[in-house]
């Protein structure tokens, strides 16, 4: 059994269906990427897993428990962390307050986890009293990741973490995701930067028009002539 199993998922916004029969598995500790053209519904898959879209059918199980009809505030307690693509920090709160909000559902902020986040992102400790909204894009991304790590999730979902970052920061961001995964957290990532994501991940899914098109290891997808032609620009 995989940690996360999505099968035959139909979902969308209001009456508009975006996803049609999406299947996806993430095993414990695995690193899985979803790539595909714009408008394929990549982000929608993540939002649907987190209970932020209109559910229309299919099943989502996490650690053998059906979660497809749960609201986000329940899903977060199951061990799934989610970092949205945009607006993923509280700009007028300090860095430390942002991290504390990540552990809001716990009775008190676990100091050991705060410590681990600071060890992972030392710049956040240096700037813990700074308002998060005044930081650079790369640092804000660290605040967002740090916040979602405060609950020590079994699965971390990252929606385009490298979007809008300068090229050298893109590399750094992917390195950080690797580290998080190396420490045992399963990662599900949606990326526009498909080649880099497929190079780093264990397995990848190519999503087209709301359905799976290809599914294989990252290396195999990168090597596949048809995938290269259609989705990776040759």
């Amino acid at each position: 059994m995989g940690l996360l199993e999505v099968s035959g998922l139909d979902a969308g916004y209001g009456d508009l269906q975006i996803l049609a029969g999406v299947n996806l598995v993430v095993d414990a500790g695995e690193y899985v990427a979803i790539v595909g053209p714009n408008g394929a519904g990549k982000s929608t898959v993540m939002k649907s897993i987190f209970g932020l879209t209109a559910y229309m059918g299919g099943s989502i199980t996490f650690a053998d428990e059906e979660i497809s009809q749960l609201p986000p505030e329940r899903i977060i307690t199951k061990g799934i962390g989610y970092v949205p693509q945009n607006d993923n920090i509280f700009p007028s709160l300090t860095v430390k307050e942002n991290l504390e909000m990540g552990a809001y559902i716990l009775d008190e902020v676990p100091q050991s986890r705060l410590r681990r986040v600071y060890d992972r992102f030392p710049v956040l400790e240096e700037r813990k009293s700074q308002k998060a909204g005044t930081m650079s894009g790369g640092q804000q991304q660290m605040v967002a990741m740090g916040r979602s790590l405060m609950l020590d999730p079994d699965l971390l979902m990252l929606d385009e973490p490298s979007a809008g970052l300068a090229p050298d920061l893109v590399e750094e961001t992917f390195d950080r995701v690797d580290q998080i995964n190396d420490d045992g957290t399963a990662v599900l990532i949606v990326e526009q930067n498909a080649k880099e994501a497929l190079r780093r991940c264990d397995r990848g899914y190519v999503l087209v028009q709301g359905s799976n098109r290809y599914e294989d290891t990252g290396e195999a997808l990168l090597a596949d002539e048809q995938v290269r032609q259609e989705f990776l620009g040759g």
């Binding site: 509280f90 909000m101 809001y104």
Partner: peptide, 22 residues
């Protein structure tokens, strides 16, 4: 904590929801 949650929700209601703030 409640005060911080109020500021967080004023900042970004959608994120507050995803973070588990009631």
């Amino acid at each position: 904590t409640l005060g911080k949650a109020m500021r967080a929700m004023a900042d970004n209601r959608d994120l507050a929801l995803v973070t588990g703030i009631p």
